Amino acid sequence: MKHNRSILGGLAALLFTTGLAVAGPGSAGHAHDADAAYGKPGDPKKAARIVPISMRETDEGKMAYFPDKVEVRKGEQVKFVLKNGGKVDHEFVLDTVENNAKHKIAMQKNPDMEHDDPNAKRLAVSQSGEILWQFTKAGEFEFACLIPGHYESGMKGTIVVK
């Protein structure tokens, strides 16, 4: 038992000193429960509308999503097919504007935070990923790249649920 504690303690110290963090359920800005204001993770056994989203930098030096606005119906399930066509890492974090603002502050304090959650993916250059989401409530929501500096460079989009 004493041996296991020292291994766990050493592992915790290693993670702490490397500065690497992995965002998990309940982390700042994360809402992974079924009652999230913007919906819930989708059911892979059900049909979904496919919405391709490209992430990249423009010739003018902005960072952007293409498209940067998506309209869905309340109750609709959407599969976002993500592609990082840029020259740097990007992420797609789906949430409310308020939660993304809080999470952006957390990302500034810990820029190496990794996302691989039901509502968020971080993609290296040329990588692809998917997010399957069901929009259960009407309103306006946001997808954003919260890597420091990216949001400020224009990397955000709107989802309108009718």
Rank of each mutant, 00 (worst) to 15 (best):
V51A: 11
V51R: 06
V51N: 06
V51K: 06
V51L: 10
P52Y: 04
I53S: 04
I53H: 08
I53K: 10
S54N: 12
S54G: 11
M55A: 05
M55L: 10
M55T: 06
R56C: 08
R56V: 00
E57T: 12
T58C: 02
T58F: 02
D59L: 12
D59P: 07
D59S: 14
E60V: 07
E60R: 12
G61K: 05
K62N: 12
K62G: 07
M63P: 00
M63V: 15
A64V: 15
A64L: 14
A64I: 15
Y65E: 06
F66K: 11
F66R: 11
P67S: 09
P67G: 09
P67A: 10
D68S: 15
K69I: 13
V70F: 10
E71A: 12
V72N: 02
V72A: 12
V72D: 03
V72I: 05
V72R: 03
V72T: 10
R73C: 03
G75T: 09
G75D: 06
E76Q: 10
E76C: 06
E76Y: 02
E76K: 07
V78T: 01
K79P: 01
K79L: 15
F80Y: 03
F80C: 05
V81H: 10
V81M: 13
L82Y: 01
K83G: 11
K83S: 14
N84G: 00
G85K: 14
G85Y: 08
G85W: 07
G85Q: 15
G85I: 07
G86V: 00
G86W: 00
G86I: 01
G86F: 00
K87I: 09
K87W: 08
K87H: 09
K87L: 11
V88I: 13
D89S: 09
H90Y: 12
E91T: 09
V93K: 02
L94T: 01
D95R: 10
T96A: 06
T96R: 04
T96N: 03
T96Y: 08
V97K: 14
V97S: 11
V97L: 12
V97N: 09
N99P: 00
N100M: 08
H103Q: 14
K104G: 12
K104M: 13
K104S: 15
I105C: 05
A106S: 08
A106F: 08
M107C: 13
M107D: 11
Q108C: 10
Q108W: 05
P111S: 01
P111H: 04
P111F: 03
D112K: 15
D112E: 12
D112L: 15
M113L: 14
M113R: 13
E114C: 03
H115S: 07
D116E: 11
D117H: 13
D117F: 08
D117T: 13
D117V: 03
A120E: 06
A120Q: 08
A120M: 02
A120S: 10
A120G: 08
A120T: 03
K121L: 00
R122Y: 01
R122Q: 05
L123R: 01
A124N: 14
A124S: 13
V125H: 04
V125I: 08
V125L: 02
S126R: 12
Q127C: 02
Q127T: 02
Q127I: 00
S128M: 06
S128G: 10
G129E: 01
G129D: 06
G129A: 03
G129P: 01
E130Y: 04
E130K: 05
E130P: 00
E130F: 02
